[in-house]
Amino acid sequence: MADLLGRNLLEPGDFSAEELAGLFDLADVIADAPADFDRRAVGKILATLFFEPSTRTRLSFEAAMLRLGGQVIGFSEAGSSSAMKGESIADTVRTVACYSDIIAMRHPKEGSARIGAIHSNVPLINAGDGGHHHPTQTLTDMLTIRRKMGRLDNLTIGLAGDLKFGRTVHSLINAMKIYPNIKFVLMSPEELKVPDFVKYDIQSGNGSTFVETTDMQGAMKELDILYMTRVQRERFFNEEDYIRLKDRYILDNDKMSYAKEDMIVLHPLPRVNEIAVEVDSDPRAVYFEQAKNGMFVRMALILSLLGIE
């Protein structure tokens, strides 16, 4: 994995299909025997700069580094960082890069990770930049798809919910477009449709196509993968819009009855009510397994960016 040594990960498209395949191969090996890797990153420090609250992404990064034998420093909200004093992202990252070997950064502003990467002399991983990208969630999603479906090409992927502000959606499309014969079925209310740059992304892919629909039930039967998302309260300037839109797409057993036997349901979590709890016991619901894969792929990513065999 020497190819990824010293690189940044700002969006999934930063890595080629071959590089991603190597990363997923390593994640598979780690998943099969995690204890074999528990001393690989001894003496290395991961800095987690979370200017925006997060539970699972931050814990997943921290668990990944700790399971590799490394250590973690950082903060979990802007209020406990020097951002409160008015320090720029550039200066914060430049300083933290002096203390650490690798940085995972989350920030509510779109494009913040690029600013961080410009000013960091250690690898920087975008752990979510506003509604823009969330590439390690995408690696998680892709590893889960690969482990469950056995392939990353020739798939019809339905994405439902908040496709406008849903950075996991933008990143998944950005990543999957490079594989042959991917069809995206975009299911959202009119107000939460994907931004134009995502449509351009699809059109620049390896023959990938998309359709937009508001009819989730009608689309279910053709899907290989259903990617559910939460309508995120924190992305709205207006509470009324959030309340009006949050319950528009809810997956329940009735809708699941229209889906293929081997379809899988993914969700980046946390879930609110967009997937009824009754769906959890359906073997096609793999979102908790997906969370575990997230830790394994982050372990693989940290090792690869640090150039550790």
């Binding site: 779109e110 494009g111 913040s112 931004p195 740059f197």
Partner: peptide
């Protein structure tokens, strides 16, 4: 045009 940072068109 596309913004270098946030990709806004």
């Amino acid at each position: 045009y596309r913004c270098e940072y946030c990709d806004e068109i």
